[in-house]
Computed example of a mutant assay.
Amino acid sequence: MNIFYSDYQVFQFINHLAVTVPSMNPLMRFLAKDAEYLFYLGVIIYWLTRSPINRRMVATALLSACAALGSGGIISHFFYRDRPFVTHAVIQLIQHPANASFPSDHATGAFVIATAIWMYRKKDGIIWLALAALIAVSRVWTGVHYPLDVLTGAFMGMTSAILVYRLFESSTLGKNVLNTCMTIYEKMERKLGA
């Protein structure tokens, strides 16, 4: 069976939930459009606590996000896929440009940050991973991504966060580079705060 045919069948099932369970549509619109800002806010709050572990976690999340989203941008040029609403009649609950659908930047970004948090703070990370999963589902529910788009984005985000975490926590060179950067930043922060 063709993987894209199966992907489309799963898409149809999830997207049609907008008709069968319309009471969930406002939540799905919020998750698909605005829930990513909760991740940005979370990163800022963790950073501002000035806890060394939180700062390592945020540095890991940001570098992982750069790697994952950069890779996603490259992949989207080589494996271009139209959005579902371009190719099919769908229930589209949010507006979106008709650009590349694969992989999902929203899923990549949400899962890269959630996984980075999970690597350092397991209990917090479970909550963030659950939110990332809801965002991924909402992108299909609202008609702007196929399931394969969000699954690939989730995989890329998680893989990137795990690799960068291992670089910083297992590699002496990676650990030293991160510690040096953090020390320089904190000296500047103290100097500007004085």
Score class of each variant (00 low, 15 high):
residue 113 I to P: 09
residue 115 T to P: 06
residue 136 A to C: 09
residue 89 A to L: 08
residue 120 Y to F: 15
residue 119 M to A: 06
residue 80 Y to A: 00
residue 108 T to W: 00
residue 103 P to Q: 06
residue 132 A to E: 06
residue 129 L to C: 14
residue 135 I to L: 08
residue 111 F to C: 06
residue 138 S to L: 11
residue 118 W to S: 08
residue 95 Q to L: 04
residue 69 L to D: 07
residue 68 A to N: 07
residue 72 G to C: 13
residue 119 M to I: 08
residue 96 H to K: 03
residue 97 P to K: 12
residue 75 I to G: 12
residue 122 K to Y: 14
residue 99 N to K: 07
residue 133 A to W: 09
residue 95 Q to N: 11
residue 131 L to M: 13
residue 126 I to S: 09
residue 132 A to K: 09
residue 105 D to Q: 14
residue 124 D to I: 05
residue 123 K to E: 07
residue 115 T to S: 12
residue 115 T to Q: 11
residue 79 F to V: 04
residue 67 A to D: 12
residue 101 S to E: 01
residue 96 H to Q: 04
residue 68 A to L: 09
residue 69 L to P: 00
residue 100 A to V: 03
residue 76 S to R: 10
residue 111 F to W: 12
residue 136 A to W: 00
residue 107 A to P: 05
residue 115 T to W: 10
residue 71 S to L: 15
residue 120 Y to E: 07
residue 96 H to Y: 07
residue 141 W to Q: 02
residue 115 T to M: 14
residue 97 P to Y: 03
residue 127 I to Y: 06
residue 133 A to S: 15
residue 68 A to H: 06
residue 137 V to D: 12
residue 93 L to K: 08
residue 72 G to N: 03
residue 118 W to D: 07
residue 135 I to Q: 08
residue 138 S to G: 13
residue 81 R to L: 11
residue 85 F to Y: 09
residue 93 L to W: 01
residue 67 A to L: 15
residue 137 V to Y: 06
residue 108 T to A: 10
residue 104 S to M: 06
residue 136 A to L: 04
residue 110 A to S: 15
residue 84 P to W: 00
residue 126 I to P: 01
residue 140 V to M: 10
residue 118 W to M: 11
residue 136 A to Y: 01
residue 101 S to M: 01
residue 111 F to L: 13
residue 133 A to E: 03
residue 106 H to V: 05
residue 122 K to R: 11
residue 79 F to A: 05
residue 112 V to F: 10
residue 98 A to W: 02
residue 93 L to R: 03
residue 116 A to W: 11
residue 104 S to L: 01
residue 93 L to T: 08
residue 83 R to M: 05
residue 137 V to E: 07
